[in-house]
């Protein structure tokens, strides 16, 4: 158990963390919905600037665990998270942390592409606007363009930024949502089955994008597709019935799992 923040980082806004230190440290993380415990004491370190995949059968708690990192579980009535979660050495569940500030640093992409019923421009500009990130007139335009470029969507939409975000294709919508998340300059991007509603071509584009983004971001991705986990991630955690059964390098998990349950799942015998 780590009770004290690591000495290197002193402020919750400190964004400089040495690459070798883990982005997140989780110790004995438990989550409850009412009286039902859905996470049974998770201990794990999540590395920065890489992709960590969370796999497991439905209802195993991997999505709940993902929502631990941006405190989205706070928004669910009756949900409760205990234990210790550190980001850059700071306890993100301490009273000093405002969840809205945390969520500006930890972006999230959901399963279903869900652009706001606004223009493409306004979708991306929404986050910067509410956080006041643009100081002068043209800066918002720059942020929007930069974010759309990072999300590999700029070339497809630059001539129709005024059109509603919902008019895009599913794959484009999902990249728009990623651009929207990037626009507030997060350090972490959480992805909850981001490709589950996309066709194979859009999925390939998305995976390519994830590969590019990991240079700058810590990415956590929940996926049902083991092939996808194998393709995009450096590390993989296997969840089963609310417990993190096995965590390690993706290669090792998929080729030589230690736990029998992991083996059963990746070979298709369970799940």
């Amino acid at each position: 158990m780590i009770d004290q923040p690591a000495p290197l980082a002193t402020s919750p806004f400190n964004t400089s963390s040495p690459a070798r230190l883990p982005k997140f440290r989780c110790r004995n993380v438990q989550a409850y919905y009412g009286k039902t415990r859905v996470l049974h004491g998770i201990d794990v370190d999540i590395p920065d600037q890489s992709v960590t995949a969370l796999i497991g059968p439905s209802g195993c708690g991997k999505s709940t665990f993902l929502r631990v990192f941006n405190r989205m579980n706070d928004t669910i009535p009756n949900a409760r998270v205990t234990g210790h979660v550190e980001m850059d050495g700071i306890d993100i569940y301490s009273d000093q942390i405002d969840p809205t500030v945390l969520r500006a640093r930890v972006g999230m992409v959901f399963q279903k592409p869900n652009p706001f019923p606004k223009s493409i421009y306004d979708n991306v500009a929404y986050g910067p606007r509410i956080h006041g990130l643009a100081d002068y007139a043209g800066e918002l335009d720059d942020i929007v363009e930069h974010s759309l470029r990072r999300a590999a969507l700029w070339d497809e939409v630059k001539d129709r930024l005024g059109e509603p975000g919902t008019s895009l294709s599913n794959g484009q919508q999902q990249r728009l949502v990623i651009a929207r998340a990037i626009a507030i300059r997060p350090e972490v991007i959480l992805m909850d089955e981001p490709a589950s509603s996309l066709d194979p071509i859009a999925t390939a584009r998305l995976e390519q994008l994830i590969d590019e983004l990991k240079q700058n971001y810590c990415i956590l991705i929940v996926t049902h597709s083991m092939a996808q986990a194998a393709r995009v991630s450096e590390h993989t955690g296997f969840f089963y019935q609310g417990a993190l059964v096995e965590y390690g390098e993706t290669n090792q998990i998929f080729t030589n799992p230690v736990d029998q349950r992991t083996q059963d799942y990746i070979t298709g015998r369970t799940g």
Partner: peptide
């Protein structure tokens, strides 16, 4: 989902509600 999206972008409860 939309509300969650807004919240995940750091919008406050009020902002998610009124926006």
């Amino acid at each position: 989902h939309r509300v969650d999206s807004a919240l995940s972008l750091g919008a406050s409860h009020m902002q998610a509600l009124f926006h």
